[in-house]
C-alpha cells in the first residue's frame, strides 16, 4: 500500500479538466460541450456539476474527466491537467487541484464579490503577479473581448472553451460537432466564433 505516496494523480491514464467561475457564467454548458467532445473522441467520461443554491452568483466548479475508465467524478488535489478559470480570482480558489505540470487558463475578467463590495473582504491586490507566482504554466485569456468580438458578451464560456481546446488533443471538428449538439441552433454560429477567438487568444 505504499505505492501512492504522492497525493493527487492516482491514475495516469485519465485527463481531468476543472472549470471554475461564478454562478451564471455558463460553466454548465461549457462542461457539457467538453464532456460531449471527449465522448465523441471515444473516451469514458464523467463530469460533476453544481446545481441549486450555489448557482446564485456563488463560486462554482465543473469537473470533467475522461480516459479509458473513469471512477470518481470528483478530481483529487493536484489531479487536474487543466484548470480553466472564467473569473481571475477563482483560479486561486481551486489552484490546489492543478497538477504540478498542469496548464492554467485564466480569464482576465474580474467579478467583484459582494463580500468585497460590502467591505468585509479585499479583492487580491496585484492579482496578475499572484497568479503568475502560483501557476507555473499560465496563459491569460481576455475571454470577454473574444465574446464581444463574436457578437455575444455572454459567450465568455465559449471563449474559455476555445482556450481549453488549445491545450487538449481533440481536433477542431469534434469540438464543433459537440457545440452543434449542445447549443441551440440559432446561437451555434456566434458560439463557434467565440470559441475560435478564445482559442486564438490562448495559443
Amino acid at each position: 500500500m505504499g505505492s501512492h505516496r504522492q497525493p493527487g494523480i492516482f491514475a495516469p491514464d485519465q485527463t481531468s479538466v476543472l472549470l471554475a467561475g461564478v454562478g451564471g457564467q455558463g460553466i454548465l454548458l461549457a462542461s457539457n460541450i467538453l464532456a460531449r467532445t471527449a465522448l465523441l473522441a471515444g473516451f469514458d467520461v464523467k463530469t460533476n456539476e453544481v446545481h441549486g443554491m450555489a448557482q446564485r452568483g456563488g463560486s462554482v466548479v465543473a469537473e470533467i474527466r475522461f480516459g479509458k475508465k473513469i471512477h470518481s467524478p470528483l478530481i483529487p488535489p493536484l489531479g487536474a491537467q487543466v484548470l480553466a478559470a472564467f473569473e481571475a480570482m477563482e483560479a486561486l480558489r481551486y489552484a490546489g487541484f492543478l497538477s504540478s505540470g498542469g496548464q492554467a487558463l485564466i480569464s482576465t475578467l474580474r467579478i467583484i464579490p459582494t463580500s468585497v463590495s460590502s467591505g468585509f473582504a479585499a479583492y487580491p491586490r496585484d492579482l496578475d503577479t499572484v497568479l503568475r507566482k502560483t501557476f507555473r504554466n499560465v496563459r491569460f485569456v481576455d475571454a470577454a473581448a473574444a465574446a464581444r468580438k463574436a457578437g455575444s458578451p455572454k459567450a465568455i464560456n465559449m471563449a474559455i472553451l476555445g482556450a481549453v481546446s488549445s491545450v487538449l488533443a481533440f481536433e477542431d471538428s469534434i469540438w464543433q460537432k459537440a457545440i452543434g449538439l449542445c447549443v441551440k441552433a440559432k446561437f451555434v454560429e456566434t458560439n463557434l466564433q467565440a470559441f475560435a477567438f478564445g482559442k486564438k487568444l490562448a495559443a
Binding site: V22, G23, A54, G57, S115
Partner: peptide, 8 residues
C-alpha cells in the same frame, strides 16, 4: 480569499 457565497 474573499468568500463568494451565493447571493440574491
Amino acid at each position: 480569499l474573499p468568500p463568494r457565497p451565493p447571493v440574491l
